[in-house]
Design a protein around this nucleic acid. Structure first.
Length: 437
DNA sequence: TTTTGAGTTGTTCGA
DNA sequence: GTCGAACAACTCAAA
């Protein structure tokens, strides 16, 4: 009897335990459901990258990927009937929406829904403290996670494929002019990883915080849609690659935290923080979104986000700190903007990264840690190359002077003055945070 | 239950 | 210019 392989955020054929499980039952029908609930809040770059990933997968399958539009509760059952399948195989989804959706699909299906594997080396819920409760602090989680271990990458499976009519993958939405997305698909992901392993990984600890050098792996977009599995990458790491391995572990930590506390996708992990005095997201929020705050490193990051669907991680922290601690706007507004525009947007990493910066999450940054956008720019973009790349109004300002345009003899035309006084707003933030203690 | 050790990513101030 | 202290005690994890 045939089996449906319902793919979601695991768009690959290699190292894919759910495919092994499906292929063991007979011919496999590979299915992807375009769920309006997921596509609705997605920006053009994210949506286009998903479509391209689907086209790449379809090509790998010689045109046999079945794409359908609609609510998975209806669509998956419908496809099971059409295919005469005896089971539906998935890689488990641990997100708040995905896990609820899977329960609903499971309840509606006339056949079993079989979960094999997940997008993580160690699935959420597997690494817990001695008393069975989930970790809230990264370092002990990391030790337990590393000790727990994970299976080796799986060999490719020689599946027999079943064919069914498919909707076409929709055309890409219109992208901002000049936006170039990374190449999508499993083969591109593996090439990117091999290239990075050979030529970038060894330098990762030294250069990872330098947005001007732009030497990070950029594997997040591939991990997001499962074009490569973290286990595949972990298997290639050597003992010296500890810093990089920790970053993969952060992704797993936050997935486990979100799984244990699903409400933390929206609510303050530390509830008392909700009582803080926050500003309404009005014109200052718009200036932040569009990269018009007058703080060069912040504006460069926000413009990179819109132009590229990606932002360097160091700069994500700087712009997040600025929104929460200089503009006093709740992290959820920033998190939503990131989720819309980041091609690599992952709910768990995104929301908890924001909560960390806001000082409201698990293992959060201390409240008195307020990033100074000038100091951060000078330290991590010392020659100003990153700022000039994204803020053309400052293109003629030489070197690190670009981080303080208000100090220049001739203030660059067309570039706004700072919308707030950082030193003053820092004190306001410290005061408000302190009131909640 | 109590105790002890430890905790991603900073900044500012003053000696 | 450099360096250590203060920020402020708190919560978590594990023995």
């Amino acid at each position: 009897m045939s089996a449906v392989l319902w793919l979601r955020r695991d768009l690959r054929l290699g190292d894919q335990p759910a495919l092994h499980a499906a292929a063991a039952e007979g011919p496999v029908l590979p299915l992807f459901v375009l769920d309006p609930h997921l596509l609705g809040p997605s920006g053009a770059a994210r949506t286009a990258f998903l479509y391209r990933s689907l086209r790449a997968l379809d090509e790998q399958l010689d045109g046999r990927l079945v794409v359908r539009h609609g609510n998975p509760v209806d669509v998956v059952s419908q496809v099971v009937r059409e295919a005469g399948a005896g089971s539906v195989h998935v890689s488990a989804d641990f997100g708040p929406y995905g896990s609820a959706r899977d329960l609903a699909v499971e309840a509606a299906l006339p056949v079993p829904l079989v979960r094999t594997g997940s997008p993580y080396a160690v699935s959420p819920g597997r690494v817990v403290k001695g008393d069975g409760s989930p970790y809230q602090v990264f370092t002990p989680f990391y030790r337990a996670w590393a000790a727990h271990g994970w299976r080796d990458p799986q060999r490719p499976v020689d599946a027999e494929w079943q064919v069914l009519p498919s909707d076409p993958v929709p055309a890409d939405p219109a992208l901002p002019i000049g936006l170039v997305l990374p190449e999508a698909g499993e083969a591109a992901a593996r090439r990117a990883w091999q290239r990075y392993r050979r030529s970038g990984l060894a330098q990762y600890p030294e250069v990872r915080d330098r947005p001007d050098l732009d030497q990070t792996s950029r594997m997040s977009v591939y991990l997001k849609w499962g074009a490569i599995h973290p286990r595949t990458m972990l298997a290639d790491l050597r003992p010296g690659d500890e810093v990089f391995r920790k970053e993969i572990a952060w992704r797993e930590f936050y997935a486990a935290v979100l799984d244990a506390w699903p409400a933390s996708a929206r609510d303050y992990f530390q509830p008392r923080m909700a009582a803080m005095q926050w500003a309404r997201p009005d014109t200052a929020f718009e200036a932040w979104c569009e990269g018009r705050t007058g703080f060069p490193i912040v504006d460069a990051g926000m413009r990179q986000l819109l132009a590229e669907g990606w932002m360097h991680n160091r700069v994500r922290m700087i712009v997040a700190s600025f929104l929460v601690k200089d503009l006093h706007i709740e992290w959820q507004h920033g998190a939503r903007h990131f989720m819309k525009h980041l091609v690599d947007a992952d709910l768990a990493s995104n929301q908890h990264g924001w909560q960390w910066t806001a000082g409201t999450g698990t293992d959060a940054s201390p409240y008195y840690r307020v990033f100074n956008p000038v100091t951060q720019g000078q330290r991590y973009d010392p020659d100003g190359d990153y700022v000039r790349r994204w803020v053309p109004e400052l293109g003629d300002v030489p070197g690190g002077a670009v981080h303080e345009p208000w100090k220049l003899a001739a203030v660059p035309r067309g570039y706004p003055g700072p919308i707030v006084d950082h030193a003053a707003e820092r004190l306001v933030a410290l005061e408000r945070y302190q009131q909640l203690r």
